[in-house]
């Protein structure tokens, strides 16, 4: 398990977090390469299904990054995303995957540093949590059997 490299998907709003990620690049900040970004026009576009399917297919952690509260380009898409992520956290707790594998973050386009810090912290958290049990379980079985 010491070589565990988590697979992390970040759904990033074009207007803030995606731009912040580019900004992190311009500033040559560093964050773990585990994070792969999917660009969306608004964090409110991220469907519960996309988060669930990402985990089901083996992502170890998924986060949605949207604009700061009150800053959504489309009024309140980020608020919707926040509630959606809360709802899924409960569901994921119930099925034993763990709600802490999904998270909602807020940042503005200028926050390259926050993007890098968030990516680093989240990756570290998932690393502590260990692999997505969905992925790990059959492997354990194979090893045992």
């Amino acid at each position: 398990m010491e070589n565990f490299e988590p697979v992390i998907l970040a759904f990033c709003c074009h207007y803030c977090a995606y731009t912040a990620a580019d900004m992190a690049g311009s500033m040559r900040l560093r964050y773990p390469p585990n994070v792969k970004i999917i660009r969306v026009p608004c964090s409110g576009k991220v469907d519960a299904i996309h988060i669930m399917k990402s985990l089901e297919k083996g992502a170890d952690g998924v986060y949605v990054a949207g604009c700061l509260e009150g800053d959504c380009h489309f009024k309140n898409g980020n608020g919707r995303a926040t509630h959606r992520v809360e709802y899924l956290k409960k569901l994921l707790d119930e099925i034993g995957i763990g709600g802490e594998r999904v998270e909602m973050f807020a940042m503005s386009a200028g926050m390259g540093e926050r993007f890098a810090q968030t990516a680093t912290d989240f990756t570290e958290k998932i690393r502590q949590l260990g692999p997505n049990p969905v992925k790990a379980a059959p492997q354990n079985q194979r090893a045992a059997g």
Binding site: I49, L55, E56, I95, G96, V134, A137, N140
Partner: peptide, 19 residues
């Protein structure tokens, strides 16, 4: 359709996890 998708995912993950 959406709730079907979410529940299907949740159940799959649960059983995948349980092996």
């Amino acid at each position: 359709r959406k709730e079907v998708g979410v529940l299907a995912s949740a159940l799959k993950m649960h059983f995948l996890k349980a092996g």
